[in-house]
Structure formats: structure tokens, C-alpha cells
Amino acid sequence: MAGVIAAVAIGLLLVAPGTQASAEIRPVPEAEGYEYLPGEPAIWGSVGGTVGAYYDKACTGGYAIAGDSGFFLTTAATCGWMIASDRSIRGEAGNYADVFATRAEDPTVLLKMRPGNNAYQIIVDPTTGSSPGSGMVQGWTRSVDQPVGLLVGKMGIDTGWTEGKVLGTAPGRFGELLLCTDAAASAGDVGGPVWRYDSNGLRALGTVVALTDAGGACYRPIQETLYHYGAYLPSFGPPQGRPSWGTFAPGMVAYQGTVNATYSGRTIDKGDDWRQ
């Protein structure tokens, strides 16, 4: 089928192991033949609590990116209080991926899909199943081409498909700069894809990694994420290769408000459905 993202791998160091789950948690089945789409649930297993009372963090999955010998899914590092290589990620059909690695320079984290599952670069609203246009991503937009006032869309498991305008930049979790918007978002939407659909087709803009005090989404531009991981974005359009470090658009301003960029995700009981 056209659009299948071929298996490729980015060589990165694994991070420290995390907390062990208790025997009292609900079992989660293994996904088989899962077809992941950007915007679908990315629920972190056993991220906190005490023995016998573990909980999950319900977040949203972002784009698939690829390197020399593997492909990975992206989501927000703020979904987990500890980024651990044994942290399982589940969706509709059960566990489909595991946390693989992160970089201190970027607020995203890479997820490695488990064998027997696949990913398609087709954006979907997880709450309705709808997509902008065909949903097929034609490529990505440079940071410099994302100015103040640009209309963007985002997908997330809490508020679904929302749209808004770029308002300005704000510092993120590691001091990196994010683009903040007035596109509505809440805790479970972090990790989701930010996009724009216009005469150039459907294009990836970035990943939701923080929330504003006004309930808007802040995102890490996709160019910076690709640069830090030495990766490229598989798409249905012409190849764009691996980008260099980007710069923000002329006339960019600072966001006038506060931003939560440290810890997010919606808390749900271990093994529970992500729907509110």
C-alpha cells in the first residue's frame, strides 16, 4: 500500500529503566497489525503512583520520523515524569510501541514501534476519525515560514481538531523556543501533530509540547526536531531530506503569557480507556 513508512533507525542511547508496575494493574493486550496515524492516542503505561495504585498518562502521538536504520514515532517528553526505555505506549488496540530515547535539546521523545505494527503519515482527529483533506502529509514547513498570525491546526485526544493562530515564542522545557498559538488544547493533547492545510497541501508544522495559561497549544517546530535527531520526515510529497537548524520568521514576537512546559498529559487509571 502506498505511504507505508519503511523501517529505518536512528542510533541513539537508551535512557535509564523506570518504575516497575504492580500486580494489581489491569492487563493491556499486545497490539498486532496496528496501523498508527499521527493524532492517535499515545498512552504512557505505569508512569506514577504507589504500588497497587499505578496510573497511566494519556497523551497524543505525533509524526513518524526516520533516520539511517529505523523509523520512530514522536510525542511530547512532558507526558512522562521519567523517560525510560521500558515504558510501554498503548493505543486503541493495545501496546504498540515503547519509549526509545530523547535528546536534552528537544522536548519530543522517540517511540519505537513493536514488531507487526506499521505507521502511515496520515493525520487524523482521534475524537471523530476525520482528517484535513485526504489527511496525507505532503511534507513539512520551515520554521522561518511560520510567522505570527499563521493559521494552524492541531489534533489531540482531549479537544480533537482545533485551529488557531501563531501568537509568538515562549521558552520550553529545556530552554528551547516554542511557537505558541490560540488553538485550543488541554493536558491530553500534548504530543499531537500541528499542521497547516492550504494550496501547498497538508504540511507538518510541529508537535504540541506545552500549554498556555489561556488554554492554547505551544509546539516545537518540526524542523528543529528533525535537526536534533538527524532525521527526515517520510511523506507523500517530494523528499525534503534532513534539515539544518532553523530560524524563526522575521517579525516574530514573544508570547505574552505563561506556559506550562514541564509536565502534562491526562491522568487515567492503569489500563483504562483514554476517552473522557
Rank of each mutant, 00 (worst) to 15 (best):
I10P: 07
L13S: 15
L14P: 13
G18V: 05
A21F: 12
V28W: 00
P29N: 10
E30P: 04
Y34I: 03
L37W: 10
P38V: 01
G39S: 10
E40C: 10
A42M: 06
G45Q: 14
S46D: 13
A53F: 12
Y54A: 15
D56K: 00
K57F: 09
A58I: 01
A58F: 00
C59Q: 02
G61D: 07
G62Y: 00
G62Q: 02
G62L: 01
Y63H: 08
D68N: 12
G70A: 09
F72T: 01
L73C: 02
L73G: 03
A77S: 15
A77M: 13
T78F: 01
G91W: 00
A93M: 13
G94W: 03
Y96R: 01
Y96E: 00
D98M: 10
V99S: 02
F100M: 09
A101V: 02
A101P: 03
E105N: 13
V109L: 11
M113H: 02
N117I: 01
Q121H: 04
S130Q: 15
Q146G: 03
L150K: 09
M155F: 14
I157G: 09
T169H: 02
L178T: 07
A183I: 06
A183F: 02
A184E: 04
A185H: 03
S186I: 05
A187K: 14
V190L: 12
G191C: 08
V194H: 04
W195S: 01
R196F: 08
A204R: 05
V208P: 11
V209K: 11
D213H: 07
A217K: 02
R220V: 11
I222L: 15
Q223I: 06
T225M: 10
G230E: 03
P234V: 05
S235H: 08
R242F: 03
W245M: 15
G246H: 05
M252Y: 06
Y255F: 15
Y255P: 07
Q256T: 13
V259P: 07
N260G: 13
K270P: 06
D272R: 10
W274E: 08
